[in-house]
Design a protein around this nucleic acid. Structure first.
Length: 456
RNA sequence: GGCGCCAUCGUCUAGUCUGGUCUAGGACGCCGGGUUCUCAACCCGGUAACUGGGGUUCAAAUCCCCAUGGCGCUACCA
């Protein structure tokens, strides 16, 4: 049924999003599979924008999608072609089908002209899908098919088939949601007298509740993960593992390794649930493999959301903060949140941490003692700070945490930070002392009873 | 409703095509322990799955049928 491009024929695949919104995670995965397939086989990856729906398509969406595909590192060999530039082509093919009697003009008057409709096929249609195998559709599964709408624009199925044929696409790799379109399209290739490409329908990506991934599941666009500070290589790696696996136990794979290992016959049939936690874990794995200086540079723009404008970030200080934080962050946004207090006069204070450690008996006294003793230090290094704190712990005969935790909260605003001596040292003596002195005076909202609902 | 697709730990998956080597492997998460100034990381240990029922066979996660469930499509949207 399907044309079978011989081994010598160069592979040509395409990604054809419709520019009615952002680049969806499912679309990105489809683009990635197409790209991996093309690169693995030395073929061409073509970008085509399906903007036949003039009402819903926007220029901004085209730009955003293209930008995010580039960000993912998926370079294309041709395009982006816009279907809206190709309307005469579709009209020409429709005209031909009309002349040949394969299509008829609708007698229903809806727009300025009659719609062009393809006559229903005689028998059933079989699809030989590269991931599903042979699928047979009964004859009545395909009815008459509108090709050109009354407004003169082509329908999706028609424009798609004309373009895939014109662009000599050899393999159509797309989501399972297009499976039921396939018999219609095969029917169209036949009517057009054009060779039918091979099809590979990849499983859909679902939300945690098992329904198709959509906005209500939270972040679902590539742009949103980008804004969170997910690395493109981590997202690519993660997406590659959704519906495909290399067949061994490898999970952390570079783009190069993915290209080398990719094949359509290892693509799953079952839809996959998108697990943000595993994506974040993978993201951290990529941070671990990067130089702290590079991570620091990437994180600078994210600091703004925590009150630190890019101009206020000293590069060496940020790099030191990244080294100190180690593996304590999973996204760039997360890193910025955990590093902001190295750059501000005072930290954003977590009320829970404050309540827990600052209200402990003697906390105020401890903080002022630490401030007094530390202020006299000539050198403000981890090695000079530690004996002072240890000395106070010993003199009071308390557990280390009873001193260190109040200090940690006063100095960073939170109950978890890297080692306290290193943290204090990097923040700097002046700011540390000021924070220790101010903390006991703080009166945090949400602190007292009834403060929770007190808006008005 | 009709048509189609799919079905292994909570999640991603290996194993299914080419039945035995699977008392079903790995990873995320979760739980416990170690380390420790907190958290993270790390190390050790643990939890947890072949949807159900019928066949076929000496033997079924693997092959066949039915049921059930989930999802998709059912537009002059894409």
């Amino acid at each position: 049924m399907n044309a079978n491009p011989s081994h010598g024929t160069p592979v040509r695949v395409r990604f054809a999003p419709s520019p009615t919104g952002h680049l969806h995670i499912g679309g990105a995965r489809t683009a990635l599979f197409n790209w991996l397939f093309a690169r693995r086989l030395g073929g061409a990856f073509i970008l085509r924008i399906e903007d036949t729906d003039l009402q819903r398509s926007t220029r901004a969406s085209v730009d955003a999608i293209v930008d995010n595909i580039r960000w993912l590192g998926l370079d294309w060999d041709e395009g982006p072609h816009l279907q809206s530039d190709r309307f005469p082509l579709y009209a020409r093919h429709a005209e031909r089908l009309l002349k040949e009697g394969k299509a008829y003009a609708s007698d229903e008057k809806r727009g300025s002209r009659p719609a062009v409709i393809l006559r229903r096929p005689e028998g059933g249609i079989a699809v030989d899908d590269l991931v599903h195998g042979r699928i047979v559709f009964p004859a009545d599964a395909v009815g008459d098919l509108v090709l050109m709408k009354s407004d003169g624009t082509p329908t999706y199925n028609f424009a798609c088939v004309v373009d895939d044929a014109e662009m000599r696409i050899t393999h159509i790799i797309r989501g399972d949601d297009h499976l039921s379109n396939t018999p219609k399209q095969i029917r169209l290739y036949a009517a057009l007298g054009l060779p039918t490409p091979l099809f590979a329908h990849v499983p859909l990506i679902m939300g945690p509740d098992g329904s198709r991934l959509s906005k209500r599941h939270g972040a679902t666009s590539v742009g949103q993960f980008r804004e969170e500070g997910i690395l493109p290589e981590a997202l690519v790696n993660f997406l590659a593992l959704l519906g495909w696996s290399p067949g061994d136990d490898r999970e952390i794979m570079t783009i190069k390794e993915l290209v080398a290992a990719f094949s359509l016959d290892r693509v799953n049939k079952k839809s996959a649930v998108f697990d943000t936690r595993k994506l974040e874990w993978l993201n951290m794995q990529y941070f671990k493999r990067k130089a702290p200086g590079e991570v620091a540079r990437m994180a600078v723009p994210y600091l703004a959301a925590f009150g630190v404008p890019p101009g206020a970030v000293q590069a060496d200080r940020m790099e030191a903060a990244v080294r100190l934080l180690g593996e304590r962050f999973r996204t760039l946004r997360d890193l910025a949140d955990k590093a902001h207090y190295f750059f501000t006069d005072f930290p954003v204070v977590d009320p829970k941490a404050f309540r827990r450690h600052m209200h402990a008996a003697g906390a105020g006294g401890i903080l002022s003692e630490v401030a007094d003793r530390i202020e006299r230090l000539a050198e403000f290094t981890p090695d000079s700070i530690e004996p002072v704190i240890r000395g106070i712990i010993a003199a009071r005969g308390v557990k280390p945490g009873e001193v260190i935790q109040p200090v940690r909260v006063a100095v960073s605003g939170r109950a978890e930070t890297p080692g306290i001596f290193e943290t204090m040292s990097l923040i700097g003596k002046e700011r540390v002392v000021a924070r220790l002195r101010r903390a006991p005076l703080l009166d945090l909202p949400g602190d007292g009873p009834g403060a929770e609902g007190g808006g008005a």
